[in-house]
Structure formats: C-alpha cells, structure tokens
Design a protein around this nucleic acid. Structure first.
Lengths: 207, 207
DNA sequence: TTTGAAATTAACCAATTGGTTAGTTAATTG
DNA sequence: CAATTAACTAACCAATTGGTTAATTTCAAA
C-alpha cells in the first residue's frame, strides 16, 4: 500500500478540512477556490458541498479552528502559575514557539477580521472567551508591590503581543528591509524568544 | 452647479484611482470587484480598462502608491536630525499620526505581501529603497557611548515598528479583547504616541 | 463649421465561480 | 442475500467575473 492509498483511507471529512485550512490560510476567503481545495484534498469538488454545504460553512469551520488555536493559547499561557517576571518569559517563549509552528494563522485571522470584525465578537461569545482579567490584576499587583512602574495593564499586554505577533505577520517586509533569507529570519525569531521578554522587563522593572 | 456636477468635472483617471484605492485597501486584490470600483467612482466600468488596461495594472498603481506612503515615511522620519532619544520620540509620534490617517494601509500591504512577497523586493529596487543604514549606525554609536544597552540595532528597529504598527492592524482584535468602542480605541492609540517611546527608552536606556 | 481624436457608453463575451443533480458504487444492516 | 443508506462521481448550471467592442458623444483644433 503506497502513500496515496494510505491517504485515500483517511476520513474524507478530515481530508477536506486539512486541505481547506491549507488553502484558506494562505489565500484567504475571497482568494481561495473550491476547486483548489478539492484538488489539494484529492477528491471530487462536489464532496466539499456534500460535507460542508457551502464555501461559507467550510470557511467558518477553518476560521473557528484557527481562532480556537490563536486566542485560548494566549489565555492558557497567561494563566501559568509563575512569579510575574517569569510568567512574561514563559509566555513569550511559548507563544512564539506556537507562532513558529503556525506562521499563517495570525495574518489569516487579522485579514479576515478586517473584512468582518463582527465575526470575532460572535466567536468570543460562543467560545466563552473573556478579557484576561486575572493577568491584568496580576500586573496591577506588581505595580502596587513596586516591582514594576505604573503602566496601564492593557498597554503592557498589547506591547507584549505586538512584539510577538508583528514580526510573524510582517515576515516578507522584515526579510526585504533587513535583507534576510528564510533561515536568517527563523534564527532571528528564535533569538527573540529571549530578547522580547528581556526588553519588556527592562522597560517596566523598578531596579 | 451642485456637488455631483463638481465631482463629474474632476479628472476621470484620478477619480478611478481614488475609488480603486478605497476598494482595494478594504477588500484586497481578490476581494475587490471592478464593478464596485466603477460604482464608487460613478463611471462606466469600461473606463477602468480604458485608463488602466486591467485589474492587475490598476491594483499595481494602488499598491505602489500605498508602499510609497508606507515605507519612505519611515526613512524620512528616521533621518530627522535629532539626539538619539528625541529621535525615537519624534519617530513614534509622527509615524503613529501617519498611521492614524492611513489605518488601512499596513493591513493592506501586509496582506498583499503574504500573497506575493516578491512584489516588495521589486518595489524596493525600483524605488531605490535600502536598509536604513544610517539609523542602524546611530544605534550602534549610542551603544558605544553607553547611552543604551547592547542590542542588535535591527531588533530595536523591529521592536519600535511592532509597537507602532501591530495595534493598527489588529484593531478588531484589540477592540474585542479589551471591550473598547471606536472612540476608546482612538484614545488609546493617541496615548500610545507618548507611551511607546517611553517604553522603548526605558527598555534600552542606561541610567 | 468641419473634422478627427479622445472620452464615454451600453451591450456583449468567454472564462471562471460556487453549487446542484442524476446516476453509480460501496458499505451497512435487517 | 436483499435492500436501504451513505459515499462518491461526472456532467451540468446559473451567476458572476474581468474584459472587449462597436457605436456615440464631447470637444478642441483647423
């Protein structure tokens, strides 16, 4: 039994979702073609509608899955039981590792939300996702303890996320501006796992 | 002569470009429709091809214009003749103001480059844009003077850009996560003009 | 006023799009 | 084994897409 045969045996519904993920993540909703997804899955195009009814429904499945990866990961990491500065280090290290393995997801989500911002609010409601109040409180407590300077907790969270996510979504820009090839870019992201946490801690720590 | 008549008098080619900019910036290349651009410009669809030959050519014009705004602005601001820390403050303040007035551009450029990374390299060549060596050198000099900690100049530049640009492209995410309306979001961006520079300087300054 | 090029329009076209359908095969079950 | 259902396919379809074209209007120069 060769590789193709093995693939043929796999659950068709999953094969479609895998193919749809690949195509939608790269091309976005409007850029993706049902035929291309079918080709990628190596099945008849009618199967897409058979299992998912419509392009919209299939996209919805892919988007939810991506959002389910992207957002809960933040909250999960941020809820680790660690001292304040170690938590920042832990978060940056692990979120960046997650992003390294899911390079397309941030750009995909950002772009699709630009077309339909409402989508995220609906997702947050049905996935029971809320503002990370606990971590925001921990920041406030660190301020009270005079471990860190006075700063709007949301600003700090946004800064950390910016430093993690932007270099991922702006990969083509970074490679061009700084004249990096893919390997040099990867090494840079790898180094940022330590750098970003240090940068942030320097910015807020009271010595 | 009423308003519509005045608009009718305006150069058709410019009217088309204005409409194309509006539509492409929001919907992207694949999402934009020639008919929608024609409607927006209030002219016959055939005029688009009459003046710009094809959707690709029209898009090219819009993209170049956006890139021409987005990148040279960085280099222009970074070449201001100011002491090191003041330059960071000046840059953040002015680049964020530019982004406030061009909210769509970063997302537009990032998304289109994800589809076709090659495009930016070609643009950099023909627009004679190069790595901002002068500013990278100034960072190195500040390190030597022991004004700031030792840091890869490219890392510092990337961090500043991340802190400025990400909150713009991730507007829908931020509004949802932190439960902000448009007005609260705008106020937050306004406050970041001071915050970001201070955050960065704290992170690198040797006291 | 005539004339000829430029600007504009409505109608049209071929290709592509997402989606359907009628019919076939494979699997399940009673 | 028969029969019912589920999985699958090829062919097709209506709508939309970017783009063309032939005819008309506008307008400045001769």
């Amino acid at each position: 039994m060769d590789n193709v045969e093995i693939l043929k045996d796999v659950n068709t519904e999953k094969r479609i979702l895998d193919a749809a993920r690949k195509v939608f993540h790269i091309k976005g909703f409007t850029g993706a073609r049902m035929q291309e997804i079918a080709d990628e899955a190596k099945i008849n195009k009618a199967m897409l509608n058979y299992y998912y009814r419509s392009k919209d429904k299939l996209f919805e499945a892919v988007f939810k899955e991506a959002a389910q990866d992207f957002f809960p990961k933040v909250f999960q990491l941020v809820n680790s039981d660690l001292p304040f500065f170690e938590k920042i280090e832990f978060f940056v290290e692990n979120y960046l590792t997650f992003l390294q393995n899911n390079m397309c997801i941030p750009g995909f989500i950002i772009n699709e939300l630009a077309q339909n911002p409402q989508r995220l609010k609906e997702f947050f409601v049905e996935a029971h996702i809320k503002t990370p109040v606990k971590f925001l409180n921990e920041i406030n407590e660190a301020i009270v303890r005079k471990e860190i300077i006075s700063i709007d907790p949301r600003t700090l969270v946004l800064n950390i996320l910016s430093l993690c996510i932007f270099p991922i979504v702006a990969k083509p820009i970074i490679e061009t501006v700084f004249n990096l090839n893919d390997e040099m870019y990867s090494r840079m992201i790898e180094e940022r796992k330590k750098q970003i946490a240090q940068f942030v801690i320097n910015a807020i720590k009271i010595k």
